[in-house]
């Protein structure tokens, strides 16, 4: 098992014929992901990277059997692409696009809540994220595939390169990953830490979870409450931004300390209180997990 993606996932890439879409779809195909369709309005009926291109996501679902969407559409049009995928019946939408206006995302959230209320729950991962990978089975995102290895550690993170760093440390110590989920650095992510922790808790192949957070918002504090109440698997965590000045956006739209809330201290304290193993030094993530989890596995 794994979460979100497996070897049978059939991807449609929205924005396949664009520069980023082409490059990363090619990488996903080389990794072994099943990219069954692309969508570029006006280019329906053509093929690109040997993949059939459709005008609409609905066609990609109907004619190519796509069940996961990967979005590389520019920010002004990305919210619309998410909603198109949701309406077409896609149940997992992974949006890589960075720079979508927050208000557009608030409207997307509202629409997705209506889908859920109507009995058609849709999971959105991102935006502004590296995507999702289940090592050895399916890569739907922009992460370098080779740093991953199949195994028992679930990883969830708000940052791209920080995830690669953590994954690489795990892989280098022989610890593979069940699934790695980048939830993205925006203020209104489609999927929260808590959502992913719940999935990992229910996944038989996940033995422990690495959670990489950063300053801004209250998602880590919310996750701490979930971990305390519901989680039996060990959780390891690193929070970036102990040196970030308040009131400044640290690259990610969501990484900002506002009105004294969302500080590094508040997150670390909440997670510690929930029994999470806090890693202060980023370079020690792999070691911290290996110390405990490799021993556990041998037993």
């Amino acid at each position: 098992m794994s979460i979100l993606l497996n070897k049978d996932s059939k991807l449609v890439v929205q924005g396949l014929t664009g520069q980023a879409g082409s490059f990363h779809a090619q990488q996903c195909i080389e990794y072994g992901s099943k990219v069954v369709a692309g969508v570029t309005p006006g280019k329906g009926g053509t093929t690109h990277l040997n993949v059939p291109v459709f005008d609409t996501v609905a066609d990609a679902v109907k004619l190519a059997g796509a069940d996961v969407s990967l979005i590389f559409v520019p920010p002004p049009f990305a919210a619309d692409s998410i909603l198109e995928a949701a309406d077409a019946g896609i149940r997992l939408i992974i949006c890589i696009t960075e720079g979508i206006p927050v208000l557009d995302m608030a409207k997307v959230h509202r629409a997705l809540r209506q889908h859920a209320a109507a009995g058609h729950p849709v999971r959105l991962v991102g935006p502004n994220c590296p995507g999702v990978i289940t090592p050895g089975q399916c890569k739907a995102g922009i992460m370098p595939g080779y740093i991953h290895k199949a195994g028992p550690i679930g990883v969830v993170s708000r940052s791209g390169t920080l995830t690669y760093e953590a994954v690489w440390q795990l892989t280098s110590r022989g610890l593979g990953q069940s699934t790695v989920v980048g939830i993205g650095g925006d203020p209104l992510p489609g999927t929260s830490f808590t959502d992913v922790l719940e999935l990992f808790q229910g996944d038989a192949d996940t033995q422990a979870v690495v959670m990489i957070g950063e300053i801004g918002g209250g998602a880590e504090e919310e996750a701490a409450r979930f971990i305390k109440d519901k989680m039996t698997k060990p959780v390891y965590s690193f929070i970036a931004g102990s040196t970030a000045p308040p009131g400044r956006r640290m690259g990610h739209a969501g990484a900002i300390i506002e009105g004294g809330a969302g500080t590094h201290g508040s997150k670390v304290e909440a997670l510690k209180a929930a029994g999470v193993v806090m890693v202060e030094n980023l370079s020690a993530i792999g070691e911290s997990v290996a110390e405990r989890e490799l021993v556990t596995r041998r037993n």
Partner: peptide, 17 residues
């Protein structure tokens, strides 16, 4: 000088540490 916002923040944190 770092690639990626999260890693850039973590690099600052490491310098401090």
């Amino acid at each position: 000088l770092v690639n990626g916002a999260g890693l850039a923040m973590a690099t600052m944190d490491s310098v401090k540490l």
